[in-house]
Design a binder for these strands. Structure first.
Length: 416
RNA sequence: GUGGAUGUAGCUCAGCUGGCAGAGCGCCAGGUUGUGGCCCUGGGUGUCGCGGGUUCGAAUCCCGUCAUCCACCCCA
């Protein structure tokens, strides 16, 4: 409501109950699947040297050009909050000397200084996977299968998967020049943005949403015609492998990735329940030169906020608040103090237990027990303290009986 | 970075031909000297985003500003 120091920064949100429970469920589902694929967690710093991202992602990309949170530390070093996870993961894996065969996932916040809108935050969260190893269609297909299985586990198998290739590094000049030459013929018909893209990022023109440009793109020869034969065969192979896995992927020549490190296979999953920002996951094969060595791998990242939006659009609600087995109701100051001790005893016995220490009326405390969804309410006053008992009420039936305090844990743990 | 819409109670919102700031839900208390839900009664919990201006008088009209949402752009 206000912009004071007590409200979060634009595009950055607090996340707590009840939504956090859906996040926890989604994360637990993903971890279970990842274990099946022998992919282990990697946690890297969210702050890195700016040069890491410039080198890995590409100096000319939009992400590096205008979307990074970059600042100088006290020593004048340029630091950046990670805008994506691959660069840091590769850096970390090189650091520990990991080689082809490393299989890791990461889960955490990423930062991009964009204008917030539906499905786009400045701090957002990704689940990413990196499978290191040299190019092999089977490796790419396995990676896509993993992503698809995670989405399916979440109930998002109605996502749409699009597939394409960037070709190899060697193909890039031919693709750029070929595309540029064909586009130059229609230059004047392109929108302003695209005319500018022509020189620096001709591939981006394919992605333009302007109706006029889209029509022109439709008339262009397939991107693959500019690629070497081997690159085309690689894409065909991945597509064939996916259909053998019953994964439906549409080969789409207009699919583009924004980061420079991709080569060969690229893909993206969009979800029909989302708005303008409908990509829930994207990935590809990459090749990153790090300190004189070349790291090859294949990976993807899933945007968790968008996953939550898709789930909510599908009517998936956060799991319910965990209800306490028993709620302690205190009559008088002595009982209140004694109930604190009792609560700890119950918890030591593994019994989820709630109470309030406000000294309010029994009526108010019972109301709190009801609201918390407690199965039982245990009432204690001076009389019960003297007798070593409590009045135990079963909330659903309203039945009430006297139970020895020493037996309370056993009774409330047993069948209601 | 550009454009449009919206900011009133904890939440959802009404009030906007300028004239005492409201509803529903929620919350609190009572109806039950020690018992929840349903019902009844009572309680408004507020910097009308913020700062100026016009006016006898502004939540309402004007200007500015901040924030949020949506879209462009870009991407997960």
């Amino acid at each position: 409501m206000s912009s004071g120091c007590w409200s979060p920064l634009p595009g950055m949100a607090d996340l707590g109950p009840p939504e956090i429970r859906l996040w926890q469920r989604v994360e637990a589902d993903a971890r279970r699947i990842l274990a099946l694929y022998r992919v282990e967690e990697l946690r890297t710093p969210i702050l890195e040297r700016t040069s890491l991202f410039q080198r890995a992602i590409g100096e000319e990309t939009d992400v590096v050009q205008k979307e990074m949170f970059t600042f100088e530390d006290r020593g004048g070093r340029s630091l950046t909050l990670r805008p994506e996870g691959t660069a840091g993961a590769i850096r970390a894996l090189c650091d520990v000397g990991a080689e082809a065969g490393s299989r890791v996932f990461y889960l955490g916040p990423m930062f991009r200084a964009e204008r917030p809108q539906a499905g786009r935050r400045r701090q957002f969260h990704q689940l990413g996977v990196e499978l290191l190893g040299p190019p092999a269609p089977e490796a790419d297909a396995e990676c896509i299968a993993l992503m698809w299985r995670i989405l399916s586990e979440w109930g998002l198998a109605d996502a749409r998967l699009r597939l394409h290739t960037r070709g190899t590094v060697a193909d890039q000049p031919a693709v750029r020049e070929g595309l540029r030459a064909r586009l130059a013929e229609v230059r004047d018909a392109l929108c302003e943005d695209c005319q500018r893209r022509l020189d620096r990022q001709p591939l981006r023109v394919l992605d333009c949403k302007q109706a006029g440009c889209q029509q022109l793109m439709a008339g262009l020869p397939a991107l693959t015609t500019f690629l070497a034969e081997d690159s085309r065969r690689y894409l065909d192979r991945v597509a064939t492998l996916l259909s053998s896995l019953q994964i439906e992927a549409m080969v789409d020549g207009r699919l583009v990735r924004g980061l420079d490190y991709y080569e060969h296979t690229i893909w993206e999953a969009t979800h029909p329940a989302l708005g303008a920002q409908d990509a829930i996951a994207g990935g590809g094969r990459y090749r990153i030169e790090a300190e004189g060595r070349v790291v090859e791998g294949v990976g993807f990242a899933i945007g968790l906020e968008r996953v939550m939006m898709a789930l909510q659009a599908r009517g998936v609600a956060p799991p319910p608040d965990p209800a306490p087995a028993v709620w302690l109701v205190s009559v008088g100051d002595r009982a209140t103090a004694e109930n604190l001790v009792l609560a700890e005893r119950l918890r030591s016995a593994g019994v989820p237990c709630g109470a309030d220490w406000s000294g309010r009326s029994v009526k108010a405390q019972m109301r709190a027990a009801h609201k918390a969804g407690a199965v039982w309410a245990a009432v204690r006053g001076d009389e019960e303290l003297a007798a070593g008992t409590c009045r135990l009420k079963h909330m659903a039936s309203g039945e009430e009986r006297t139970v020895a305090v020493d037996e309370l844990a056993a009774v409330v743990s047993g069948p209601a």
